[in-house]
């Protein structure tokens, strides 16, 4: 893919852990790609499946979701519910031959600044290698 491709990436983060990871990263002055837009939710378990699908159909080139590590959820089990929903959405996309690899789910804890910037950078490179999301510019969706 051409270097000029600047992917639009939506990074959905849990307000307790994932966002904390990003804050820690900023405290250390660590770098993450500018094209990653962070979207904070109170808990990844509260993210509905439609809100995972919509960016993937309507403009984003990729979507990452980061919640707390298993056992760390502020609401006990939100991240486990989120994992089920991610699995559901990915299975639906897969079974219809749509690209499910534009959706990532990775745990990031409050102190894991390194893990956050790594995920942002790794996912950006991953999406760059895939190229633009074809659904974003189709007029028949």
């Amino acid at each position: 893919m051409a270097e000029s491709f600047d992917p639009k990436i939506l990074y959905v983060m849990c307000g307790w852990c994932g966002t904390g990871g990003a804050e820690t990263a900023s405290a250390y002055g660590m770098y993450y790609p500018e094209n990653v837009r962070i979207f904070r939710v109170n808990c990844t378990g509260a993210l509905s499946t439609v809100h995972m699908l919509r960016p993937l159909l309507e403009g984003a080139d990729g979507l990452v979701i980061s919640g707390c590590h298993p056992g760390d959820c502020h609401y006990d089990d939100g991240n486990f519910m989120a994992r089920r929903k991610v699995a559901l959405v990915k299975t639906i996309l897969d079974s219809l031959g749509l690209d499910s690899d534009r959706l990532w789910f990775r745990y990031v804890a409050h102190g894991e600044a390194r893990r956050f910037v790594d995920t942002a950078a790794e996912f950006t490179d991953h999406i760059k290698s895939k190229g633009p999301n074809p659904l974003a510019t189709r007029s028949d969706t």
Binding site: F80, R83, A87, R106, D118, A121
Partner: peptide, 24 residues
Amino acid sequence: TYEQDELHDFEQPYVKTYSGKGAA
């Protein structure tokens, strides 16, 4: 409902420190 130990295929594995192009 959920189980604690399930669906690990859908978790993106973390390689210790990412050193690709866009890395910090």
